[in-house]
Simulated assay, not measured.
Amino acid sequence: MKFSEILNITLINLIENKFKVILTSLGIIVGAATIIMVIAIGKGGEEEVKKQFAGLSAGSIYINVDFTNPNIDIKKIPKLDEEKMEIVLEDSKNISNVALNISGSASVKILGKDDYEPIVGVTDEFDDINNFKIQFGEGLNEEHQNKSEKVCVLGVNVAEKHFANAEGAVGKKIKISGKTYTVIGILERKGDGIQGISPDQSIFIPYSTGYKYVLDKKYTIPQGIALVKDINKVEDGMRDVKDSLDYIFDDEASNYMVEDAGSKIEAALASAKTMNILLMSVATIVFIVGGIGIMNVLFVTVKERTKEIGILKALGSSSRDILIQFLLESVLISSVGGILGIVLSYLLMPLTKYLGVPVLFTIDGKIIALLFAMITGTVFGFYPAYQASKLKPVEALSYE
């Protein structure tokens, strides 16, 4: 029998039983849609992580108090300061810049309304190291730091929250802890932050001003950040920083931990990929269930069409022709399920956006889902097709 004839017979059977085809392929439809959504969520998660860390330099090294140490006494712990950070810079041939920041919350009065906002005191090198860019106005500089001036830069979310538009906030006066500050700039949007700081949600003031007027010296712990000259020398830079801390703090150096931005990014991406693998496992299980459904239906179909198989064999169809016919039927059913699954994934897109789930639909996801569907139909349809091909014409024609 010619392949075109086999295909024609298969299509006629599928068209005449279209509702059964749709019901049979339900598992495949759900599986295909699940795989596409899983890949989209996984890709979206990875892109979100990359976006969140986009502003970080992979050459940044963070110096933070190790709060996992149960013996730490915040009041007595020796603290970083500008002089100590200068030692870190001078002692290492791998470090190009250093900065300090302190953070906390304070009462803020903007346009007559009282609020409570995160306040971050930073040295003038902080913006450059963290790739902070000013969207409107200007940033904090060395003069502001040296004179402990009462000026501030607003994160974009803070500006939009309190002012009609972010640009309009520049030049306005606000009160922080009862003292008047001038808004000199607005940061570009940054996404998630670093060292527990969310730039979009914070108000930045000079480091010296923060220590002098806003944040409690007893409980505020300065955090350090260093930038390596060469991205390939991060490990050497970290080793240099640790050596400097050992020299500066002696036995107290164990109170501090040194981390690099690259490892944070890799850890976040690894977490996103792990979640993607778990979701893919769920989608695979759904496909297997769908494949078993196809196999069961084909077994029933073989029983129902036993006489038809006997007639085809009596007319000269070979076992190979019967095998191809039923296998083709299985693949077409699963392919229909795959295509309908792709359509379903498009219908689910608005729901994911409504729920705020980051998704990134790619052509790869759709191709993988369709291939998965076809492979599932082939694997699970083979045995019923093989059983059909082995029926003897006489037994098939006499089957009741």
Rank of each mutant, 00 (worst) to 15 (best):
L347I: 12
T378W: 13
V38H: 10
V30D: 12
L351P: 01
V302Q: 07
K76G: 02
A267E: 14
G45H: 10
I342R: 06
A164I: 08
A261C: 11
L328G: 00
L80M: 06
K390S: 08
T34I: 05
D251S: 06
S4I: 13
M374F: 07
D240I: 06
I363Y: 15
L269S: 08
K175H: 14
D73I: 07
K173D: 07
V21Y: 11
R189Y: 01
V38R: 09
V357A: 13
P118K: 12
V158F: 07
F249Y: 02
E83Q: 12
Q195P: 08
F204M: 04
N276F: 12
L351G: 05
F53D: 03
L154Q: 11
D230C: 04
I294R: 01
I119R: 08
R305W: 06
R189T: 11
D81E: 10
G191Q: 11
F163W: 04
I61W: 01
Q135G: 13
G381Q: 14
I288R: 10
V183I: 15
K2R: 15
V108C: 03
D251Y: 01
I28W: 14
E82P: 04
I29N: 02
N131G: 10
I41D: 04
I248C: 05
A268G: 06
I368T: 01
F249K: 00
I309R: 12
Y383S: 09
V228G: 01
A385E: 01
G262S: 15
S335L: 15
G341E: 14
I29V: 11
G224I: 03
G381V: 15
L370Y: 02
S271R: 12
I174A: 02
A169K: 05
K175E: 15
V30P: 10
P78C: 03
E149V: 00
G290E: 09
A373M: 12
M275S: 05
N296T: 03
F67K: 15
K303Q: 07
L26P: 08
M280R: 12
T182S: 14
K172G: 12
L323A: 09
V300D: 03
F67Q: 13
A253T: 00
M238T: 04
I311D: 01
K2H: 14
I176P: 06
K242V: 01
A159P: 05
N296M: 13
Y213A: 09
I61S: 05
I333T: 10
L80R: 02
M257T: 06
I324E: 04
L347Y: 09
M374S: 14
K147S: 13
S271M: 13
F380T: 11
A268E: 15
K229D: 04
L7R: 11
F204W: 10
T352Y: 12
G155M: 13
T220H: 13
K161N: 10
S330V: 05
V331K: 08
K109A: 01
V158Y: 11
Y116C: 10
I39N: 01
K93T: 14
S105H: 12
E83F: 05
R305V: 01
G155L: 02
L80K: 10
Q52A: 15
N296L: 11
A385H: 00
E138A: 03
L26A: 13
Y116F: 05
E167Y: 02
V289Q: 05
L23D: 08
L323E: 08
L100E: 02
K51I: 12
P78R: 00
G224F: 09
Y354R: 04
Y399V: 02
D216A: 12
L397C: 06
M295Y: 00
I39G: 12
I184D: 07
I285A: 09
K217S: 14
